[in-house]
């Protein structure tokens, strides 16, 4: 029983959303690598095919004692959004008190009264970072680094499953060798963005 409780506490459900082509699948690969290294079971669901062509993309990812690949509405511990519109559209996946990590490019949207009320009522922890702005400033506007930036932000926020040293190790292993230096640089920018 004690063991069961211990396992339960490690159970994590993630929703990762964005637009096809933003490199969302890489984020779940990093999550998976970290969980497997810890010896934890994983199950998740990805989008391939037509929807990857610039449309809305959603990845479900569960670590711990789960069977099915899909996260139920209202049960995600974390919603990670590469795109704020997609993030808001999928916010109902988040459980009460969950973390909403979102790349923002239009702050006005978050001033919507209904959204503010929903976030307050559900006690949602909102963590915004200006991904495009950061990449414009430091990476010559190469937005393909957005996925690594969001990993950095997740690590900076100490979201379970994104431990800083483990993400860095996973990046070194999973990303193409020629991009390692830039990836680690962007990862650092992400960590900084989270604490800013």
């Amino acid at each position: 029983m004690a063991n069961e409780t211990a396992n339960k506490s490690k159970d994590m459900q993630y929703i990762i959303v964005g637009v096809g082509g933003q490199g969302i699948l890489f984020t779940s690969r990093v999550l998976g690598k970290i969980a497997i290294d810890k010896g934890l079971p994983i199950v998740g669901s990805e989008v391939h095919g037509m929807a990857q062509r610039g449309g809305s993309v959603i990845s479900h990812f569960k670590v711990g004692s789960f069977f099915g690949p899909l996260v139920s509405d209202g049960h995600a511990d974390v919603v990670m959004a590469f795109d704020q519109k997609e993030g808001i559209r999928n916010l109902s996946f988040l459980k009460e008190g969950g973390t909403f990590l979102v790349n923002t490019n239009c702050a006005a949207m978050f001033e919507n009264d209904h959204l503010k009320k929903y976030i307050a009522d559900r006690k949602i922890r909102v963590c915004k970072f200006k991904g495009f702005h950061i990449l414009d400033e430091h990476m010559e506007g190469n937005y393909l680094f957005l996925n690594v930036l969001i990993l950095g932000a997740a690590a900076g926020l100490k979201i379970p499953g994104f431990e800083e040293d483990r993400v860095a190790a996973a990046l070194k292993e999973l990303a193409p060798p020629k991009h390692i230096d830039s990836n680690l640089k962007v990862f650092g920018l992400g960590i900084k963005a989270a604490s800013a």
């Binding site: 637009v19 096809g20 037509m50 929807a51 990857q52 062509r53 610039g54 449309g55 809305s56 209202g74 519109k85 997609e86 808001i88 559209r89 916010l91 109902s92 009460e96 949207m109 919507n112 209904h114 959204l115 009320k117 929903y118 009522d121 559900r122």
Partner: peptide, 21 residues
């Protein structure tokens, strides 16, 4: 959970699923 506030926000902000392109 009551998601009516979120629904209203999504409507007001005009957020729809992005079509593949």
């Amino acid at each position: 959970p009551d998601a009516s506030e979120l629904k209203s926000a999504i409507e007001e902000l005009g957020l729809t699923a992005r079509k593949p392109q």
